[in-house]
């Protein structure tokens, strides 16, 4: 495959752990959505999480930046444990970028303002510098010519690329992607995946909830399969698709690969 990435750097000599999840449980009222999750993500590692809908995969990555609260176990991000301490939560969110299924750009701000908002208000970067960084990342996602427009004037694929650039402007240590391509029209999926593959090439630590098998094969180190709130299988992309171990993984793959 032409854009196969070198993965052995992290696989053979893993970097320091950046996200550690230890015996974590989460409930929505009485409903046990996440059951005994253990996961360590190393710097530079790229992990794909897949599984049927309702399996808890989105909830899992949303726990990492505390958009969801966990009730048992520990989550440690960049050496800081997530507790109810608001200051810690905000500190972790500065370091963890998130890309949403529905982009969630701020519709009342221009593209450029969307990108500079975080750096200016959270990182206290001077405005001129923040704009320079913003333009750099807009170039990177091939959308610099739209900087003065509003999100409502852009296509879905363009909006998602802006959303990725918005996260990058915060210079995050980890990027979370919550089904980044599932709200897109088919012809726009590739432009977003290409941007994500570029990011992967630069060694960004990424956790991606997605069923994009092409992306998994070309950019991921590990694939996790979740069902019913548990991580059932963890494998390299090649083995995961060609030699799945778990019965439910086989069933799931047969359904999505037709």
């Amino acid at each position: 495959m032409s854009n196969e990435l070198p993965k052995n750097n992290a696989a053979s000599s893993p970097g320091d752990p950046i996200v550690e999840i230890i015996e974590m449980h989460k409930w929505f009222d009485d409903f046990h959505v996440l059951k005994n999750i253990n996961l360590t993500v190393h710097k530079g590692e790229r992990i794909i999480i897949c599984g049927p809908s309702g399996s808890g995969k989105s909830t899992l990555i949303r726990c990492i930046n505390r958009l969801e609260e966990h009730q048992r176990g520990r989550i440690i991000v960049d050496g800081i444990e997530l507790t109810n301490d608001l200051k810690n939560i905000e500190k972790i969110r500065e370091e963890v970028g998130m890309v949403f299924q529905h982009f969630n750009l701020f519709p009342h701000l221009t593209i450029l303002e969307n990108l500079t908002l975080g750096p200016v208000w959270v990182r206290k970067t001077p405005k001129a510098e923040a704009e320079e960084t913003a333009m750099f990342f807009l170039e990177k996602v091939h959308i610099a010519d739209q900087a003065r427009k509003y999100p409502g004037q852009l296509s879905g694929g363009q909006q998602q690329r802006v959303a990725i650039a918005r996260s990058l402007c915060m210079k995050p240590k980890v990027m979370l992607f919550d089904e980044p391509t599932s709200a897109l029209d088919p012809e726009m999926i590739k432009e977003v995946l290409d941007v994500m593959i570029d990011l992967a090439k630069e060694g960004m630590t990424m956790l991606v909830v997605s069923h994009e098998m092409g992306f998994a094969k070309s950019a991921a180190h590990r694939v996790l399969f979740m069902d019913d709130g548990e991580i059932l299988e963890e494998n390299t992309p090649v083995d995961f698709f060609e030699n799945p171990q778990h019965e439910r993984t086989k069933l799931f793959l047969s359904q999505i690969l037709h």
């Binding site: 905000e90 500065e94 969630n104 009342h108 959270v122 918005r166 915060m170």
Partner: peptide, 29 residues
């Protein structure tokens, strides 16, 4: 939408910033 709150929070904005910069400008409009 919930997504606007979440996007603001995931950037690390605190409550006053989130309300003043993201939520109120849209809600008041």
């Amino acid at each position: 939408s919930r997504g606007q709150y979440e996007a603001a929070e995931s950037l690390g904005l605190n409550y006053p910033q989130k309300m003043r910069l993201i939520i109120l400008p849209q809600a008041l409009k």
